[in-house]
């Protein structure tokens, strides 16, 4: 890996890391969603700065190109982030459904002046 590429990769990773921390600080990104992004940023920095580790891992995985390995890891992280978001969307969908149902029932009961029997 050339030093130029190394510098760029470390720079991108570090910027991502700092930007995410800043987003959390400004409360634009919740902590629960930030950890995977932070982990991704950190891995970019670690793997590009510590070339020997990248080399070791690429040999371990059958001697593939170190740069290809970086892409491979990048893709795995993106997949994990997408999966994480899908799970969160599923939860949100259920919560929105539940809320709309409760609101609709409450409204209809108020309209007909039904007795608010507590469950």
């Amino acid at each position: 890996m050339t030093w130029q590429l190394k510098t760029v990769a470390v720079f991108i990773g570090a910027t991502l890391f700092i930007y995410i921390i800043e987003m959390v600080r400004k409360r634009k990104l919740r902590e629960e969603y930030a950890w995977l992004w932070l982990f991704t940023g950190m891995m970019i920095v670690v793997l590009s700065a510590w070339y020997d580790l990248l080399l070791y891992l690429s040999v371990l995985l059958g001697g593939i190109l170190p740069s290809a390995l970086l892409f491979f890891f990048g893709m795995i992280f993106l997949l994990l982030i997408c999966l994480h978001l899908s799970v969160k969307i599923s939860t949100l969908t259920d919560q929105v459904k539940r809320l709309s149902q409760d609101i609709a029932i409450m409204r209809s009961r108020r309209n007909i002046g039904a007795d608010y029997r507590e469950d």
Partner: peptide, 27 residues
């Protein structure tokens, strides 16, 4: 008839489920 109006389209199953929730609440 009693009308329960969902704020947006949730789909057949969810609308039906709202009905069950209402029926149970009403005893």
């Amino acid at each position: 008839a009693i009308v329960i109006e969902l704020p947006f389209n949730l789909g057949y199953g969810a609308a039906l489920q709202t009905g069950y929730q209402y029926a149970l609440k009403q005893g």
